[in-house]
């Protein structure tokens, strides 16, 4: 709802005058999605910028600019709190893309490390990461993990073309 339609607007008389205009404009932008202000303020305060969101269940994974580097954050949207992720954000790696499953126990990510781009599956419940080989060889660019945590869809660049690989996880 736009500020012109808020019932607590200071001037009731002016608001009444605007009502027909709002109606003509299709509900005064009532179609705008409703932001979750509390969590959005927390996200803004968590770094100098953030990008590449992945929502699943109560979890939000995203890439946050913090200091001079980017890191992967996982936020519990029910509590509004970040989830500690031991062993995921390596100082020698730069995250490019991330996707979380609905249980919040599996994260798939693409990162650059040692001059290579790699696809990694991270298990939060045990704090372990495992690279997933791209076969035939290619450069992973985007990743999507199904909410049930069983399927990975990966955009892979091979010989100048982007293709999609599907990987069934054990």
């Amino acid at each position: 709802m736009s500020r012109f339609c808020r019932p607590d607007w200071r001037s009731r008389s002016a608001a009444l005058m605007l009502l027909p205009v709002c109606a003509l404009l299709g509900g005064c932008m009532a179609d705008q999605p409703r932001p979750l202000d509390g969590i959005n303020r927390q996200l803004e305060a968590s770094g100098s910028g953030n990008r590449a969101p992945s929502l699943s269940g109560r979890w939000l994974a995203l890439i946050t600019s913090r200091g001079n580097r980017e890191v992967i954050d996982l936020v519990d949207l029910e509590s509004g709190r970040p989830v500690p992720m031991a062993g995921l954000n390596r100082p020698d790696a730069e995250p490019l893309a991330v996707s979380v499953d609905g249980s919040g126990r599996r994260l798939a990510l693409i990162r650059q490390r040692d001059g290579r781009t790699e696809l990694v599956l991270h298990r939060l419940d045990v704090g372990a990461s495992e690279p997933i080989a791209i076969t035939p060889a290619g450069v992973p660019e985007q990743v999507a993990l199904s909410a049930d945590g069983r399927i990975l869809a990966v955009q892979v660049s091979r010989e100048g073309h982007s293709q999609i690989d599907l990987i069934t996880l054990p």
Binding site: S56, G102, Q142, A144, L145, S146, A147, D148, R150, I151, A153, V154, Q155, H161, S162, Q163, I164
Partner: peptide, 13 residues
């Protein structure tokens, strides 16, 4: 030769 980008899966895959 198709160029395919930005995959997304339904929750059940």
């Amino acid at each position: 030769t198709e160029t395919r980008l930005e995959p997304a899966l339904s929750g059940d895959g």
